[in-house]
Amino acid sequence: MSAKVLVRDLQKRYAGVDAVRGVSFAIEPGEIFGLLGPNGAGKTTTVECLVGLREADSGQLEVCGLDARRHPQEVKQRIGVALQSTSLQDQITPREALKMFGAFYRQRTDPETLLKRFSLIEKADARFDTLSGGQRQRLALALAFVNQPELVMLDEPTTGLDPQSRRELHDDIVQMKQDGCTVLLTTHYLEEAERLCDRIAIINHGRIVATGTPRELMAQRRGAQSVRLVTGRPLDLARLAQLPAVQDVAGKDNEATFHTTGATATLGALTQWLGTEKNEIIDLQVRAASLEDVFIELTRDPEKR
């Protein structure tokens, strides 16, 4: 089957800034694809070009087999979108909103079904301004599903939600995949991406800097575990950096973090050195590289690298 979304060399410039500079990626049917990047990296602009809110300057945009730049209205019939912080009129109720938005599409889902699926039955006739943040976000998701979409695009859907609501929303997103829907998700929560996404693209300064499954991305830093160390007395960081296999030392006083390509050798030398200095280890943590490490590594300002 061909890709659900195909973006090739997308360029978008506005207000004198190159927001997106040649982004390319493809999303396969049925997968949850995460677009990750720091604020201002170009995630939202990319999504806005895909959903027809902005016109791309150049590049190829294919959504559900359609040229999204030439047939934006047809694309809109087939996709569902939940943008970050969607707000509706204060007086509208979820049931009315679902009914009205449904009327905008050729194909629609019964509002009752959506109210049930997104746990909004109890609030079906409550005014929008009385809904909690989580309920509003669930309504935004429900609205994305009024047209039985083949593809849903969720732009930072969990921003500003409490952990409980976020957990519920994660379950909803997993359910979407199980229902056969393709999902494009932008987020800056890395554990969210790690947990939900089949594949991830990391975008920085308007360009894709890495693509792959979370596992593949983390593997890029395999062998470089991160270490956190707290000691009883202040540490000599220059001396620490000379220990075998140690990289990227940072910290001050009696705390330090660093990477190591050979944990065993490093830790052996470390305990020996601290022993001769009579400097007690208070805390020592060694862990494999996380997606966060990869992300920070890839999106770090080049001058600070």
């Binding site: 027809g52 809110l53 047809e74 809109k76 019939q77 943008l83 509706l88 009129q89 938005f101 905008f104």
Partner: peptide, 17 residues
């Protein structure tokens, strides 16, 4: 006020002209 809240942005995501 609807535009400020993003309601029109939401309409814009649907096929209705």
């Amino acid at each position: 006020s609807e535009r400020e809240r993003g309601v029109w942005r939401r309409y814009r995501l649907t096929p209705i002209p």
